[in-house]
Simulated scan of single mutants.
Amino acid sequence: MIDVSEVITDPDFAQAYVVHRRSDSWAAGRTLSSEAPIKMVGVITVADAKTLNQLPEGDRVTGLMCFYATKELFTTRDQGTSDQIEWRGERYRVKQVFPYGDYGYYKAIGERMAGD
């Protein structure tokens, strides 16, 4: 199989971003949450520039971005919630992950968390 991880981290295409990974643990009868920032570099592309959610309290504009990484990204799992990716001052919640690990990379689709 072809390993394309070199393209994912190539400085001509890649950008830096931070993955905020939350995890939960159980201690003294309570759930404790913690968040760890993970610095990553990868290609970022537009998946859907604008999505309009029409809610009773008003319209909310979000957007979808594709984040490519050489390390695995996660949606909701047993030990915590979906990864959040910080890029250009915005946070995106990972909604879907395509596990292309056999080819040296992972593709995640993230939705912008703050709506206009």
Results as ranks from 00 to 15, higher is better:
D48W: 04
G63Q: 11
D78P: 00
G63N: 14
R21Y: 00
V94H: 06
D59K: 02
E6N: 13
G58Y: 05
G115E: 08
F67N: 03
V18D: 11
P11A: 00
M1W: 01
G58C: 10
K71A: 11
G110F: 02
D78L: 13
A69N: 07
D83E: 06
I44D: 11
Y103N: 07
I8G: 03
T45Q: 14
P37H: 01
I2E: 09
S33F: 11
M1H: 08
Q79I: 13
S25G: 07
G63R: 04
N53F: 06
A47H: 01
K107R: 13
T76G: 02
E72R: 12
A14F: 11
T81P: 04
F67Y: 08
K95C: 15
T62Q: 06
S23I: 08
V18Y: 00
G104S: 01
G63C: 01
I44N: 00
G58F: 12
S25M: 12
K95M: 14
G89M: 01
A108E: 03
R60D: 04
V41S: 05
G58L: 03
R30G: 05
D83R: 03
G110W: 00
G101I: 04
W87L: 09
V43W: 02
V46P: 05
Y92E: 04
G29W: 07
S23A: 14
T51A: 10
A108H: 10
R30F: 14
V94M: 12
L55I: 15
T9A: 08
E90G: 04
R93A: 11
E90K: 06
C66S: 15
T9P: 04
S5P: 02
A108V: 08
K39F: 15
I38Q: 11
D10Q: 00
D48R: 14
D116M: 14
R60K: 07
V46M: 02
T45F: 02
V43A: 10
R93N: 00
Q96R: 14
D24R: 05
R22G: 12
K39N: 12
E72W: 05
M65L: 15
I8A: 05
N53S: 01
S5F: 09
A108N: 05
V41D: 09
V43M: 08
L55S: 13
F67L: 05
F74T: 13
R91E: 02
R93T: 13
G80W: 01
Y100E: 12
T75D: 07
S23N: 03
A49L: 04
Y103R: 05
E90Y: 03
I38A: 04
R91P: 02
T51M: 13
Y103L: 14
A114S: 05
G115S: 13
G29C: 10
R77S: 01
R30E: 15
G110P: 02
A69P: 11
D83S: 06
G104A: 10
I8T: 09
E90Q: 09
I38W: 11
P11I: 08
A108M: 12
G58Q: 00
R77G: 11
M40S: 06
